[in-house]
Nucleic acid binder design. Structure first.
Lengths: 224, 224
DNA sequence: TGCCCGTCATCTGTATGCAATAATGAGACT
DNA sequence: AGTCTCATTATTGCATACAGATGACGGGCA
């Protein structure tokens, strides 16, 4: 049949990549819930493509750890249930601790300056009290820590874990007072990194995530 | 056309996975040199399959960081430097350190007994000097550490990272003396865990992986 | 009534064909 | 002689077709 109606999208050359991002977003944002089956035919219909690119996207998502795959079985959104939730936050805390520790040792002058500058600027967002804006900054802040390790694999592990926890963290900044507390916790991390105090940075980051964990699990169980 | 001669391999259900491993081995062992083009047709002919599974394998290898991919261009072998070998080993060391530390705190009596028993039994394998047998035990030993954390997500991260490093670690037990050295390093880890000395266990595990890293990178770069 | 087995429907795995893009080489023009 | 352009070719991207596997349903038998 004539797929002439292909909306120039094809010409981006990266149909599969777009699907990977789209599906990853759906998983991370909670539109697709853990355990949900990702059958190829439905996805193909949904994206108006054939099963071939869908399969490739699913394989990549599998390699990224976002979906589980077994032979002759549908891909499923990886499980993040309550039992797992605590484990994921603990792992996240460990990872953030490592990243902060390594960042304290390895960030170059530019990275340190950027970290400090952006951190100070975020004070404005706290004052403004706009959770969405701060959430965006917060993501960037943590990415900075991951990149500061100068270790691509740690960056990947941290990003992946963070992505899977995202749905559970979404609402945390709505809790009153969480914004300024978050800023203070960031401040401890930043200060330690600027001092190149690896141990303190690691501990501060670990504690920061642990606190987020507490704030988030409260929210998580409420979703039923 | 009749692909009747498919050598039952097809029936394993994991054709693509086998190809991933095979190609990864070829890259790591130097049969395929960095920068070399991996065109789908040649690979398909080589493995006696069609381009479809080849494409999926290449996509997975791309996600693993072993090959580079750009739209409408052949996949190319990344060099191990780009494949962030060092980064992966460092991350592995950190993960193993965490797992050993948590295991020291959390393993129950049964787990500790099993760990000790199997560790002692492995002495036989060292004496026998059979690398394959020890390699199998070694995998199980590390899995024990991961499970001992009682944290499914850490288990997953560690397993995943370990799987990606597997091709690089293949030859290490062939290095003379590595077997008994490995046993000694394991011994330090086990002893610390049995004493519930979290800090010592974490450090011992970190060092253990670092040593493997050195042994493996020597092997990897030797191919130049 | 309950269990077992066979048939069928659904879905994944792989092959093949067609369209589109990038690489290559020949020819013409400066 | 060098370079730019265009045509040809090699190769990727996607769609479709077919084969094999898995799970569900229903009928037969104890």
């Amino acid at each position: 049949m004539t797929q002439a109606k292909r909306k120039t999208v094809t010409r981006t050359g990266t149909t599969v990549e777009q699907m990977v991002r789209a599906i990853a977003d759906m998983i991370v944002s909670g539109i697709m819930v853990p355990g949900e089956r990702l059958d190829e035919l439905s996805l193909a219909a949904r994206f108006e493509v054939s099963r071939t690119p869908v399969r490739e996207a699913l394989r990549e998502l599998g390699a990224m750890g976002l979906v589980g795959r077994e032979p002759n079985r549908s891909a499923i959104v990886k499980n993040v249930e309550e039992a797992h939730l605590h484990a994921m936050f603990e792992a996240m805390a460990e990872l953030e601790g490592i990243c902060a520790r390594l960042s304290a040792m390895r960030m170059d002058a530019d990275e340190r300056h950027a970290l400090e500058r952006e951190h100070r600027a975020s004070m404005q967002l706290v004052r403004a009290g706009v959770p969405e804006g701060y959430a965006a900054y917060n993501t960037e802040f943590h990415n900075r820590l991951y990149r500061g390790t100068h270790n691509d694999h740690l960056l990947e592990l941290a990003t992946q874990t963070r992505a899977r926890l995202a749905p559970f963290r979404h609402a945390q900044f709505r809790l009153s007072g969480r914004l300024s507390k978050s800023y203070e916790e960031h401040d401890r991390i930043v200060t330690a990194i600027l001092r190149a105090d690896a141990t303190a940075a690691g501990k501060a980051a670990y504690d920061h995530v642990s606190i987020v964990s507490d704030a988030s699990t409260v929210f998580a169980v409420a979703r039923g």
